[in-house]
Design a binder for these strands. Structure first.
Length: 603
DNA sequence: TTAGGGTTAG
């Protein structure tokens, strides 16, 4: 008794004894007299103030015996306090769905009525671990007690549960069930569509929301903009931007970032840049949106400039930044900078798995360092379909077909299912190595074994495979039997085959078809002109060049680039931009002369 | 005491 009096006097002591009692409740000391402990326990709960002091709460949350806790709470004189304590505890479970549901059940068993606070907490915990079955049990209670119809928090957390579990139609059903809805209900439903891949429906729901005279807030704006980014619809994006301005939606850093992302994904880099420049507050995501957005638009140099600027003002890059930078390095051939990023990753002890690892493999492969790419690939603890595809495509591009196919054959053993892009790599490998029989088998396996439907790109690879091997008739037959309309890639591949094998008449026919699907490009003219030249049909070649000129179609000049000491030098036919171009041309002449001499000797 | 937010790879 003395101990009890003491502990009710001092908060700190209360805290201590409280903790001790709950340590027992948590299953710690079995030798103590359980009866006495229960008395102490009950006393503490009766005198405990609400909310519970954090150490006590922490102990209860970690207790295995939530049933015992409810049993004790049941005997409190003040039942409202008991419910409050339960709510406090369920909140502190911090998204642990299983324990939240256990406590919820124990509450019911011990005669408590979970209220409009308990239910959203438990549903939130279920959402966090996608525990749909448990969530549905809680829903049943919420329906029975009328909470779903009367409390918008309950309704919204339920929409969210179905959303994160991928049940779009149920989320919509809960939303529709009553007219009880606020801006969070609408936003959660819109987000449900976006997260589950229905961007168009998300936008339509936003329009419905506007018709219902519900005003969007900054969170709605962010989600609707992300839907628009996925659609790449600039006209819509501008409309949404106008909506934000007209309705004075508070524009915080999230809205700014979403706008930058939207404009870039919709192909308007200038507007994205303008928004970015005018943002009063930026964070690392703002920079990431701009850097990766520019890289995805093919503006790799601008992306790299922004990365340098970001560094110069001391913003620390994160995983997202590094992936965007590696992507730009890969496409610009910036091996040295790519290596620097790799060293940075090592220095910061960032794990090179998943996105970062895959981006490194791709960067090394695209920059010509295939052995380094392979080393990173081998060193990855956790490889996925992206990792395999990156290395297979890399090896295929480097002419290492056998290695590429060997890695492909390793995938089933590792439990990784190839996807459509993996097969592009596999078929490219076959095509470059002239492996016709293997290529045909892989193409067949795509649908028969892996249940993947070949797309135009795969037919393009097969046309290329047959074409390179001189099997022009087989290539034509495949095109005739394609389930979709042949596009420019298909005709381009066949025309390429005509060039290799000198098929002038067929080439003329294919060129017409290529021009039908791609009239403004130079590819068809250039290839056909080469076919004529190879067949010594100079007049036809000249005629074609004139026709091209008449239609104002210019040949896209081929471009090579070399990185030296971190600087990229680009070379185009006839280009004189390099400060030492005179020396370069002189050396080129010397090389050509050596080659000619070598050829003469060989003959 | 309670619900909804942006950026990454082949």
């Amino acid at each position: 008794m003395f101990m009890l009096i003491c502990m009710s006097s001092y908060w700190a002591t209360t805290n201590y004894v409280n903790s001790q009692a709950f340590r027992v409740a948590a299953g710690g000391t079995k030798t103590d007299n359980i009866k006495n402990l229960r008395q102490i326990h009950a006393f503490i709960l009766k005198t405990a103030s609400f909310p519970l002091p954090p150490p006590t709460l922490e102990l209860i949350s970690s207790s295995r015996n939530l049933g015992y806790l409810c049993f004790i709470l049941k005997h409190l004189e003040n039942q409202d306090l008991g419910l409050d304590i339960c709510n406090d505890i369920v909140r502190s479970l911090n998204g642990n769905s299983l324990r939240a549901v256990v406590l919820f059940r124990e509450m019911l068993v011990n005669g408590f009525r979970p209220d409009n606070y308990t239910v959203p907490y438990v549903l939130k915990a279920c959402s966090k671990s996608q525990a749909l079955r448990e969530g549905v049990q809680v829903q049943a209670y919420a329906v029975k007690t009328g909470l779903v119809l009367s409390n918008v928090y309950v309704k919204n957390t339920l929409i969210r549960l179905y959303s994160v579990c991928g049940s779009v139609s149920y989320a919509r059903k809960v939303f529709e069930e009553s007219s009880l809805r606020d801006v969070v209900s609408w936003t959660t439903l819109i987000q449900c569509y976006v997260k589950n891949g229905f961007a168009r429906e998300a936008i339509l729901t936003f329009f419905e929301m506007c018709d219902a005279k519900m005003k969007a807030d900054e969170m709605t704006a962010v989600i609707v903009l992300s839907a628009c980014s996925k659609l790449g619809d600039l006209k819509l994006g501008r409309k949404l931007h106008d909506y934000i301005l007209d309705n004075r939606v508070p524009s915080d850093v999230y809205v700014g970032n979403a706008l930058v992302d939207m404009y870039l994904k919709c192909g308007d880099a200038n507007s994205a840049r303008k928004i970015f420049d005018e943002m009063p507050v930026r964070n690392v995501v703002s920079w990431n949106s701009l850097i990766s957005g520019l890289a995805n638009q093919g503006e790799f140099k601008d992306a790299m400039d922004m990365f340098r600027k970001m560094q110069s003002i001391g913003v620390e890059p994160d995983d997202f930044t590094l992936v965007g930078v590696l992507n730009s390095c890969a496409n610009l051939g910036l091996l040295e900078l790519g290596k620097w990023v790799h060293a940075y990753i090592d220095r910061k002890q960032i794990e090179a798995d998943r996105f970062i690892g895959n981006a490194l493999v791709d960067m090394y492969a695209k920059c010509g360092a295939i052995d380094q790419a392979f080393k990173v690939f081998r060193g990855m603890k956790c490889r996925d379909v992206y990792s395999y595809t990156a290395i297979i495509i890399g090896l295929a591009m480097h002419g290492e077909a056998k290695r590429a196919l060997s890695i492909f054959s390793d995938m089933p053993r590792r439990g990784i299912k190839p996807d459509e892009v993996t097969f592009i790599g596999v078929l490219t490998a076959c095509s470059h190595a002239g492996l016709v029989v293997e290529g045909k088998r892989y193409f067949k396996d795509m649908s028969c074994v892996y249940n993947l439907r070949p797309q135009t790109e795969h037919y393009g690879c097969m046309v290329d495979l047959f074409g390179r091997a001189g099997l022009i008739e087989e290539a034509q037959e495949l095109i005739e039997n394609m389930p979709m309309e042949p596009d420019a890639y298909i005709w381009g591949a066949l025309l390429g085959a005509c060039r290799i094998h000198g098929c002038v008449e067929l080439g003329e026919d294919v060129m017409k078809k290529l021009l039908k699907v791609e009239p403004e490009r130079d590819g068809a003219y250039v290839l056909m002109s080469n076919i004529y030249s190879s067949a010594n049909k100079w007049r036809d070649a000249v005629k074609l060049r004139k026709e091209m000129k008449g239609k104002n179609i210019k040949k896209t000049p081929g471009c090579s680039s070399i990185e030296l000491d971190g600087v990229v030098y680009e070379f185009r036919k006839g280009g004189k931009s390099h400060p030492r171009s005179k020396e370069i041309y002189k050396l080129l002449e010397e090389i050509m002369s050596h080659i000619k001499n070598f050829n003469n000797l060989a003959q």
